[in-house]
């Protein structure tokens, strides 16, 4: 992996560290009244390095805990998508009826663009808790991974490598697990990095619109929503927007570098 890829990975790790050590910050992200009383929408000062938000909470703390929200959502989505997607893709590659089922499922889920799926599901079933949001975000990503896995596995099964393994007595399942999946890892890694970017951006848009992480949980989307309603409070928009942009930038760059064919 080139220097750019390493830099991207380092940036992601830096945000992960920020999220992990957010608890070390002096303020509580939900605390509204500080020792100096209620301080609503104050610009950055010595006491609050990034100012306060529209109910008086410290913005820097909300930003750090927001990193935790976004990255945990991204990690959760990633894990579900990889596990479920690979399983579905493998099932589709191994069995005709499963293939029909998975393809139909994939077509239905991908017929509606992802953000609309999340909003509509909440319109029909009620506002989502954070775990439910995770499931809704994981759905389109699972389809992406499933399609990828299915294509890769079918490719390997058809290659001489797959035929040789079968001739030596391997079951098709063993060929999939032992040979096809390891060969699919680079593409899956690209999909994984793409998922991180997708979730961080989706969380920002969804919570901005009121259909993401439920309040009063700290989140980057929530800070952006406040920024939209309080345009003059630049300390709400700038650090948050920069944070979202940097994380998705790192994730996109990582995806590019992982997808780069060796020798190019």
């Amino acid at each position: 992996m080139t220097g750019r890829g390493h830099a991207a990975l380092a940036l992601l790790l830096a945000f992960a560290l920020l999220a992990g050590f957010a608890g070390l910050l002096p303020y509580d992200p939900l605390e509204v009244r500080g020792e100096h009383g209620l301080e609503v929408l104050r610009p950055p000062s010595e006491r609050h390095w990034l100012g306060t938000d529209d109910v008086g909470r410290d913005v820097a703390t909300r930003l750090a805990y927001g990193a935790r929200t976004s990255l945990l959502l991204a990690l959760g989505t990633l894990v579900i998508a990889l596990v479920a997607g690979t399983a579905l893709g493998a099932a589709a590659a191994l069995s005709r009826p499963a293939d029909a089922g998975v393809t139909a499922f994939a077509d239905v889920v991908s017929a509606i663009p992802a953000l609309f799926l999340v909003v509509a599901a909440q319109g029909l079933l009620g506002r989502a808790s954070t775990p439910a949001l995770l499931a809704l975000l994981a759905l389109p990503q699972t389809v992406v991974v499933a399609r990828l896995a299915r294509a890769e596995i079918r490719r390997v099964l058809a290659q001489p490598l797959g035929e040789a393994a079968r001739a030596l007595g391997a079951t098709r399942l063993r060929v999939v697990v032992r040979h096809a999946l390891p060969l699919a890892v680079p593409q899956l890694a690209v999909a994984a990095a793409g998922t991180i970017a997708f979730v961080v951006l989706a969380e920002a848009s969804l919570t901005f619109l009121g259909f993401g992480v439920p309040p009063p949980a700290p989140s980057w989307g929530e800070l952006l929503r406040q920024a939209h309603q309080n345009r003059l409070a630049w300390w709400l928009a700038a650090p948050t927007g920069a944070a979202v942009t940097l994380v998705s930038l790192a994730a996109h760059t990582l995806a590019d570098e992982l997808g780069r064919k060796p020798g190019l």
């Binding site: 920002a204 948050t240 979202v244 942009t245 996109h252």
Partner: peptide
């Protein structure tokens, strides 16, 4: 281009 892809629409609108 990659910056534009990573810029959240919510922030773009606010800016």
């Amino acid at each position: 281009a990659v910056l534009a892809l990573s810029l959240p629409p919510a922030w773009a609108a606010v800016l």
